[in-house]
Amino acid sequence: MAALAALLASLPAAVFLSLLFEGIDRKLHARMQGRIGPPVTQPFYDFAKLLNKESVFPSSSSKAIFASAPVIAAASSILAGAIPLASLVAGTSVVGDLILILYLLTMSSIMVMIGGSSSGNPYGAIGFSRKMVMLIGYEVPLLASILPLSLKSQHSFSYHGIVQSQVGMGTCFAFAYPSSAFAAAAFLACIPAAAGVVPFDVPEAKTEIVHGYLVEYGGPHLALARLAKDAASFALSFLALTLFFYHPPLFEGHASLGGLASAILCVAFAPAMMFLTVTVPRTVFARLKVGQAFKFCWSLPLTLSALSVVLSAAGF
């Protein structure tokens, strides 16, 4: 029951943190370009503004899919962000919820993609095909990089189990074994692609295909589609921090506060993760082409994750 309450409380928290993280990202991005940048609260204004606008449905779209896709997308990526938060706070989690989290993140991408392609806009169609390629590109290394963690934590696919096994080891996975160190590198290298930022924002490349699958969206639906993206990058950076860098001396909160304290500490450190994996790449790289992006995903992250799986199977 307590776990359910924690999850329910985590949902609005995940929404809030997603938007806050986008604000931090935009501010740092701007400062790295020499700009002042928008206030950190800007995404909240944008979100509120878009919610108050009217949604326009193109006549060529299949309305049911077009309208429901962003809702499902936002819901699933918020859930993907809320589950880790809740299980840290409650100190428990369901068996195999890590698979669920990653599935929800993929779900969110697929839903936005389907929504875009149902708009009947050629840019949406190109965005769809590009996103498809990207999905195939980053999903495999992303999933493969989780395997070593599971192997090292008694074959558990429970999020909380993996976090707790770091507590048991007394050190975080990124520094514990060679295999998990490679897995951490692979996971981090996949985040820009999974979050869909430059250099991997090919499916929505604004100068090429006018935001691809988002092209026909407006108003509350656009707000939700964008929230889905923000929540995904929040969830990914939070996952990266807690799965690979949950260094117990740093994150194990005071005993009296329990899980809440460590969750707050993780949230406080997650922007650093996001800065490294989202803000810096999108500041210092040019957008890749689809082929180049795919080639990247299947070279560096895939090699790293394959290496980590082999190493962990061999017992390193």
């Binding site: 790295m32 370009q33 020499g34 430059v198 250099p199 490349a205 100068t207 500041t283 790289f285 957008r287």
Partner: peptide
């Protein structure tokens, strides 16, 4: 900007 490199655009 066309190649998605906004930082260089700003510089």
């Amino acid at each position: 900007y066309e190649i998605g490199f906004d930082t260089l655009f700003m510089f």
